[in-house]
Amino acid sequence: MTTTPTTQSVQLTVNGVARSGETENRKTLVDFLRDDLELTGTHVGCEHGVCGACTILLDGEPVRSCLMLAVQANGRSLETIEGLGSPDDLSPLQQAFRESHGFQCGFCTPGFVMTTVALLRENPDPSEAEIRHCLSGNLCRCTGYQSIVEGVKSAALALQAGENR
């Protein structure tokens, strides 16, 4: 039986920056982002696709980065939490979450933020029911969700007011 190499090189774009690395075939995308690209903002919460902490955007659409192989991201464009605003310059969405005291321990936060980025791109004016339905793929153990929902609502308002970025 012929064998293929156990590692491959991967070239991809992360937050607009070309990145590359050599990865084992079996390595998940989230492990590659965190270990190889040292982008530790994306968190690993369950490794079986339920908690949503590892949610990133793949070519603009939300995906669980624990449920993809790193090699599958070859040639693709990713967005992670690091691509939004910085501590000195929060994006309107991050600012809205801060003002709503959206999060506590912060571990689930990157997944919620990226899920919200995708939601508001597709539906700039979601109802509370739509927000809750969309966020139900992400688990938070601290907040009871209400402050996150409020954050999404005010982010939607901020983005509608033209603070798009």
Partner: peptide, 9 residues
């Protein structure tokens, strides 16, 4: 089926 981030893949 699951959630948005499941259905995209």
């Amino acid at each position: 089926v699951g959630h948005d981030a499941i259905r995209t893949r």
